[in-house]
Design a protein around this nucleic acid. Structure first.
Length: 457
DNA sequence: ATCGGCTCGCGCAA
DNA sequence: TGCGCGAAGCCGAT
């Protein structure tokens, strides 16, 4: 068991006798949650109650009702499951930098545990909390199979530089986590009632981006989809995943993003399945190497979502081409309306707006075209992130930032033949889509989906 | 259909 | 120090 390697101390503090508080962040689940396990271990050792607190912020990096609804429905399930384990769940609202220290004081907490998140806004919250509290505060990497700081101590250049570092640690960290046990010590405070429905209805967020009906939020729904994918989809994953005209992807990313599903659970099911070895390897590569590389990029590069964060060679070449003529130029509004001359691009944009999830291959094409049609790479990155974060269920994720930075800025990629606008950034064009896929079928499907209301709840 | 070139930085072997 | 190689690319030559 290597739980201690997943934990790093944000502040040693002075332990007190009170309950252990797990401040739940991006790992919104009860099963396979190393942060929750660590918190319970601490609480059992100290013979004190265990409490989970989630801090809901009134707005978060442009999140819309679609994403808030998905998250809150999942949290409602978490709260009920924790209750059965004798673990109290609190929902706080407002600024976590104020709320968490106040909450810790109010219930007389003895120690604080958080889950690891590389996004700067969340690291900022944790820094502020660390400065205010006096009790110990541990951070646990509950998302990555190989903890981010164990896999590598620096920003990796590409997948090939991190792959070995992950694989040589993989078996060790694949060991199953203990399950959460019924907690022996009960909190004496009065029960905290949460009006989930009122909460959802009272949110002051952009409600024009509606929840979607094709995917059900929550830990149980996530496990169900995982098992269906492993049974029916995994065998064809390698051959079908990159074809936008096929339904070859796992569709697990919304669950993984909100931590309703753990990489551990997914990897375990995939490894145990009898799918062909190649399919399993291809999937594990995506699930583990690529996702954990994205966390590495964001954790070790504070400019993970802006032009400055691109590699030197990429900025040099993009700078050289920044005054190149742009034969097609679209405003953010035209992009958002899917009103370009390119029907495949419009279909991808529509898929994202209607469904909350664009096909993975099209995400690359989509972002590269935004570079081609924008006044500058800076604007391209900004607008791609804006759209991604507004509509995708898995917006605001290290994967999303890294993917956009890969497509527009050559992150984790290599230089390719020089051409206008792109410079040496890898280029993609419509002819490639036509050559490789039945792109007409993809366009057709998105048109149909957008004209029906079946995807809107 | 398939192959090599495009071109930079990193890891690793030597 | 040199060599091999890299997320999905394109393009032209065969």
């Amino acid at each position: 068991m290597h739980l201690h390697e997943r934990v790093r101390s944000l502040t040693q503090g002075t332990p007190r006798p009170g309950p252990v508080v797990y401040w739940m962040g991006r790992d919104q689940r009860v099963r396979d949650n190393a942060a929750l396990v660590h918190a319970q271990v601490r609480a059992r050792e100290a013979r004190v109650p265990l409490v989970v607190a989630f801090n809901l912020v009134p707005s978060f990096l442009g999140a819309t009702l679609r994403q808030y609804d998905f998250m809150l429905t999942g949290l409602e399930e978490v709260a009920a499951d924790l209750e059965e384990k004798n673990i109290r769940f609190y929902l706080l609202r407002g600024d976590p930098a104020k709320n968490i220290p106040a909450f810790v004081r109010e219930i007389g907490a003895g120690a604080l545990v958080g889950d690891f998140e590389p996004l700067h806004i969340k690291q900022g919250w944790k820094r502020a909390v660390t400065r205010t509290i006096t009790i110990p505060f541990d951070e646990v990497d509950a998302r990555n199979i190989v903890p981010c700081w164990v896999a590598s101590e620096k920003r990796e250049f590409g997948a090939y530089t991190i792959r070995n570092k992950i694989h040589r640690n993989l078996d060790r960290f694949m060991e199953a986590l203990p399950s959460i046990k019924k907690h022996p010590h009960r909190l004496s405070h009065a029960r905290h009632r949460i009006g989930w429905q009122e909460l959802r209805e009272g949110l002051d967020v952009d409600a024009s981006v509606a929840p979607v009906a094709w995917i059900k939020p929550g830990e149980r729904a996530a496990l169900k989809r995982l098992r269906a994918f492993v049974r029916y989809g995994l065998a064809h994953y390698e051959s079908d995943r990159n074809d936008p005209a096929k339904d070859g992807q796992s569709n697990l990313s919304p669950y993984l993003h909100f931590g309703q599903l753990s990489s551990h659970a997914v990897a375990r099911e995939v490894i145990a399945s009898d799918a062909p070895k190649e399919a399993k390897e291809a999937f594990i590569e995506e699930l583990v190497v690529r996702r954990e590389l994205a966390d590495n990029f964001c954790f070790y590069n504070r400019h993970y979502d802006v032009y400055r964060g691109l590699p030197d060679w990429a900025r040099t070449t993009l700078d050289k081409h920044k005054r190149d003529a742009r034969p097609h130029r679209y405003s953010l509004q035209k992009l958002e309306e899917a009103a370009t001359h390119d029907d495949a691009w419009n279909a991808a944009q529509t898929e994202m707006v209607v469904r909350g999830k664009m096909h993975g291959y099209m995400r690359m094409y989509w972002a590269k075209k935004i570079l081609e049609w924008s006044p500058s790479p800076t604007a391209a990155i900004r607008n791609a992130i804006y759209l991604n974060d507004k509509y995708e269920l898995d917006g605001r994720d290290p994967n999303g930032y890294t993917g956009i930075m890969w497509a527009i800025g050559g992150v984790h990629d290599r230089p390719w033949g020089e051409r206008p606008i792109f410079g040496k950034i890898r280029y993609m064009n419509y002819a490639g889509l036509k050559r490789k896929f039945d792109i007409g079928a993809y366009v057709e499907r998105q048109l149909k989906a957008s004209s029906s209301q079946s995807n809107i709840r």
